[in-house]
Computed example of a mutant assay.
Amino acid sequence: MRQHADRFVTRVTARNRLPLDYSVASLRVVDFLVDGLRKGKADRERVAGTLFGLGAYVGEVLVRRAGAVWVDFDAEQRTYFGQPVGVRMPDGRVWNPLGKVVNRFEAGREESLQTFYLLLHGRARQEAS
């Protein structure tokens, strides 16, 4: 999934100066991008690849900033989440960043990805510098 995220970032930043640097603050940019897809009245199937790329990016932010690891979902989790992969947090909780991006697309602002991260349970504690 890291490679999916990296390829997505390379592709969308090739012509734009989007600050997709895997920071927590960059999740606000992801919210903005999803809002743009919504405003354009795109149907979900037409933007499925973009949503997948954004979901991979959000998951990779969790990996790099919160101590998560990518995991393949088992059959029950795939049914529940509707996705093949997710992330496991240091405390063992499993989250679905691909699905969170789809939720943002379908529901709008109340599904903020930046807020999702900030309220996320199970993150690794950041050491004070």
Rank of each mutant, 00 (worst) to 15 (best):
M1L: 09
Q3W: 14
Q3K: 14
H4P: 05
V9S: 06
N16W: 06
R17I: 13
L20M: 12
Y22E: 07
S23Q: 12
V24I: 15
S26N: 08
V29R: 13
V30Q: 01
D31P: 07
F32M: 15
F32C: 14
L33K: 05
D35N: 15
R38N: 08
K39R: 14
K39G: 14
G40D: 15
A42H: 15
D43G: 05
E45Q: 15
V47A: 10
G49T: 06
L51Q: 08
L51Y: 06
L51F: 08
G53P: 01
G53Y: 06
L54I: 06
L54M: 15
E60H: 03
V61E: 07
V61T: 12
L62I: 04
L62E: 05
R64W: 00
A66D: 03
G67P: 04
D72G: 03
D74S: 03
D74N: 08
E76Q: 13
R78I: 00
Q83T: 12
Q83D: 08
V85S: 07
V85Y: 05
R88P: 01
M89D: 03
D91A: 04
G92E: 02
G92W: 02
V94N: 00
P97Q: 08
P97N: 10
L98F: 12
G99N: 07
V102L: 11
N103H: 11
F105C: 08
G108S: 06
R109A: 14
E110K: 11
E110N: 11
Y117C: 04
L118A: 09
L120W: 01
L120N: 02
H121K: 12
R123K: 15
A124H: 10
E127R: 14
A128N: 07
A128M: 09
S129H: 09
